[in-house]
Amino acid sequence: MLTVTDAVVRYGTIEALHGISFDVQQGEIVALLGANGAGKSTTLRMVSGLHAPASGSIIYEGRDITKVKAHEFVSMGISHVPEGRRVFPQMTVEENLEMGAFRRSGPLRDDIEEIYVQFPILKERRKQPGVNLSGGEQQMLAIGRALMSKPRLLLLDEPSMGLAPMIVETIFSIIGQIRDAGTTVFVVEQNATQALRLADRGYVMENGRIVFGDTAKNLLTDPRVRAVYLGESVEGE
């Protein structure tokens, strides 16, 4: 579904990603793991057009999307839940959800109600501006907003960041439901164990490189993953 080959990303003169390659198959949950500053968010921002790669290619559903602009991604079925939630602070919960369907025409009522079924708390808070929501509620809103575009590929950037363990459980079970409903998920996480319990496959990043990838099952028992999870450097790197 998504194939990235030798992608290099630069911020000015600094090279943030040194030629990374990975792929996501339809129906999978793929986790991208790594310590802070390893390049996970940069990778996700590249995949959703926020930061174009200097070289390399991104193929999505057989189409080269390397040069496609960020605002066109959502129409192609790719939806990105950004790091830190980024709900629109002065828009109500409902307006935020409507923003998620910005590129779709036609009535949204049924779709909004569907999101409310999945996230009942959002219905209670529908008239509240986004800035008044708790972190967990904002994360649910950000995910609900992304689902409003009816994506085929959902990109999630650190969905557990700053949330209480109970809420993290809820968010991860929702991510599982989203995949079961037919949406492919590519998730960036620091919380490696949690992510790998849910994912089918995973990749581990370090210093702007993907150092290895494997099935989630194998990664969970891999000593190198334990090292990353504990924030230690990988042997031999």
Partner: peptide, 15 residues
Amino acid sequence: RAVSQDAETSSLMGV
């Protein structure tokens, strides 16, 4: 309004 509040996120919404 979306661009005013958060330009980058609004581009993710297709704006």
